[in-house]
Design a protein around this nucleic acid. Structure first.
Ligand SMILES: [Mn+2]
Ligand SMILES: [Mn+2]
Ligand SMILES: [Zn+2]
Ligand SMILES: [Zn+2]
Lengths: 137, 137
DNA sequence: GTCTTATTGCTAATGATTCTCAATTGCAGT
DNA sequence: ACTGCAATTGAGAATCATTAGCAATAAGAC
């Protein structure tokens, strides 16, 4: 069995990170760090990375890998239900969506090709109305 | 208008890269580079990166961003038709799949939320039968 | 063949994320 | 409240994939 990770302690930094994660936007660890700093926090960058990662493991935050390869995080609004996102490529604003039909489809395709331990990624990206308006002058 | 990219020249390196791309496997630029070197080619790493990228733009090769963030490439077996993949997380072997219902769904969801310039990513990953057998002793 | 300019291959940047490690601090137990 | 100790933190160094810079080559048009 896995050496069971230790119970996370509630530190000032962890609380600050949690508090910062209040918007609907997906942002990079560095962006969250800057936001925290600009609001007076003295939390370190490495700590933000660690915090976001552990929160993601707990399901408290969602993490997606952008096309650039960098990981973006935001607080998860859904509970434990499996879901996906429609995210703005410019500002990160996202809404959660679910694709019920897909889950079944994925497993069917997988077993047809005899692939096991299936996992899937579905991400819709676009430009949100605000950003669209902004770019049109 | 775009300064229209120059017509790609058929160099020895480009031909070698194309020739190497014969398997069904997705591999990183570095992996393709190693393979080329091990087969006697003297092509440089940067050239492999450049070649794969330009081939991807032409639609000759598919590129996917793995969860690790690194980009994987393989020659595209489909024509121009839009498609997705079921890929082995261990060896990269992949089959092309299409998800017809999804394209429509994506646009419906997008317009419901008033997002424009929609783009989507769907990747199924799993462990292929060979790799599964290998890991079970 | 000559000429123009894309391409190549080093090597040195970048940039995001991770690692190291000494200093700090939750917090369980008393 | 006081101790003990493992978990956590923060700065900076280290990784690692990918790019950029640039002088040397080499397609391909004429
Ligand atoms: Mn979510
Ligand atoms: Mn393909
Ligand atoms: Zn936006
Ligand atoms: Zn495999």
């Amino acid at each position: 069995m896995t050496p069971s990770a230790p119970v996370p302690r509630m530190t000032r930094q962890r609380r600050e990170i949690l508090d910062a994660l209040d918007t609907r936007d997906f942002r990079s660890a560095q962006a969250w760090h800057e936001r925290l700093r600009s609001e007076g926090s003295t939390v370190g960058l490495a700590t933000v990375y660690r915090g976001l990662q552990s929160l993601a493991e707990q399901g408290e935050v969602d993490a997606v890998v952008a096309e650039s390869g960098e990981t973006l995080y935001r607080r998860c609004e859904a509970g434990d239900e499996h879901h996906h996102h429609l995210r703005c490529r410019i500002c990160g604003r996202a809404v959660e969506i679910d694709v019920p039909e897909f889950e079944a489809f994925a497993h069917r395709i997988a077993s047809e090709h005899d692939y096991g331990d299936i996992r899937h990624t579905i991400e819709l990206t676009g430009i949100c109305p605000q950003c669209r308006a902004a770019s049109e002058r």
